[in-house]
Design a protein around this nucleic acid. Structure first.
Lengths: 217, 217
DNA sequence: ACCGCAGTCGAACGATCGTTCGGTCGGCCG
DNA sequence: CGGCCGACCGAACGATCGTTCGACTGCGGT
């Protein structure tokens, strides 16, 4: 990476002595790391970047953290715990397939927003290390659960007939997951976002019911 | 990157002598590079990886290309040319806002599929170098054009009323762009894919018209 | 007053990165 | 046939990477 860095958004280290024992608990460092990982990309982020964002030197940073990959793993675990937690909720296991699917989608939006940095990290993995491949596998499990629910709802006639439920499931997951690429807390309230995603996914953008210029390619 | 690499999908170099002048034209090397960039991620990809995928040594590779960033730039230009080409098509500049928007979305799917590796690269940029930031700026222009069209269509009453057109535009772009995360040529025909994305975006997944359990958060 | 220890740091480790250089090989043109 | 030149390669460059090490500091407990 020869090019210059984007304007560094972090890194101010209080003037001289850092006597205050700021108690760097592991979870807060994971949060800092996840944020910087997302700004620069995991591979482009150096331990120097991370320690500077935490306000200490690289060697001090290692006193609190096992290493770069351990930070990644911790962040990914937090994301996956949030996502799989949804599948255990009562509303995700009872009712019609469509009702369950719709609940999961809405909750998935909430978890995405609540754990934004960690989920973002999860959705950008490439699988270069064993840790990344493990997380990718878990993520595939989650997507498979949704795909299975879409298939059920489609078989039950609860979804518009016609095309491939597997493709629909991919598009649905893609729609929800794309949030991490632009959503930032504050601008749009979470419940509004949930309503928008739900409407877009299940009712579409069009004004009238079935009309449009409904042509086929 | 201390971890092991994912199973290397390329790199066989014909046994000994490579006397055949395989004519490594620049554009084919860009294609190879884009593919490997997407597999490993740009930063995690070494010039050794690239040259091995091309079937020559690292130093030979430099005889054909200017450097890593030049390869990235070439691939991104190809992606951006394809996308911006859509905006110049007649059907993208005449007709109602909704008709124009719908045409652009369908064509965008086709370009995404036709230039899959290059567009994928574009959609994963982090902005660490000047080249990346330039491409990100161009991409923002494209998204802004779509957002503006969504706003027009919404103001003309062609879209379901209620919520934020800016959010709708983000969701629409996110839905289309998410294709690069799973679509691979062969499985699903392109025209089917176009129809699916169009239907999902504008009509939604639901079976009946406005019904569902249409609750709000 | 003393000690232990968590916290911090500068310096350095080997590895790998993108890139460059000097030189060899062999087909092609004159 | 002689020489040129594009294709190719091994070796090495300085820079930066993740990580380790030894030493210093100052607070809390005894």
């Amino acid at each position: 990476m020869t090019g210059t860095r984007p304007p560094a958004p972090e890194g101010e280290r209080p003037t001289a002595t850092r006597r205050a024992r700021p108690a760097y608990d592991p979870s807060s460092l994971v949060e800092v790391a996840a944020r910087v990982f997302n700004e620069r990309g995991y591979d482009a982020t150096s331990m120097e970047d991370l320690s500077a964002a935490a306000g200490i030197t690289k060697s001090s940073f290692y006193h609190h953290v096992r290493g770069k990959e351990a930070l990644l793993r911790a962040a990914l675990e937090r994301a996956l715990d949030g996502l799989f937690g949804i599948l255990d909720e009562p509303a995700a296991t009872t009712g019609t397939p469509l009702a369950r699917l719709r609940h999961i989608v809405r909750r998935q939006v909430e978890v995405l927003v609540g754990e934004l940095p960690h989920v973002t990290l999860l959705l950008r993995l490439r699988g270069n290390t064993e840790t990344e491949r493990w997380a990718l596998g878990r993520r595939r499990e989650f997507d498979a659960a949704i795909a299975s629910l879409v298939r059920e709802a489609s078989a039950a006639g609860e979804l518009r007939a016609g095309l491939d439920p597997a493709v629909d499931a991919r598009l649905l997951s893609g729609l929800v997951n794309s949030l991490v690429e632009w959503y930032r807390p504050g601008r749009v309230p979470v419940d509004e976002l949930v309503a928008e995603v739900d409407r877009m996914a299940f009712e579409g953008l069009l004004a009238q019911g079935p009309a449009g210029d409904g042509r086929r390619a």
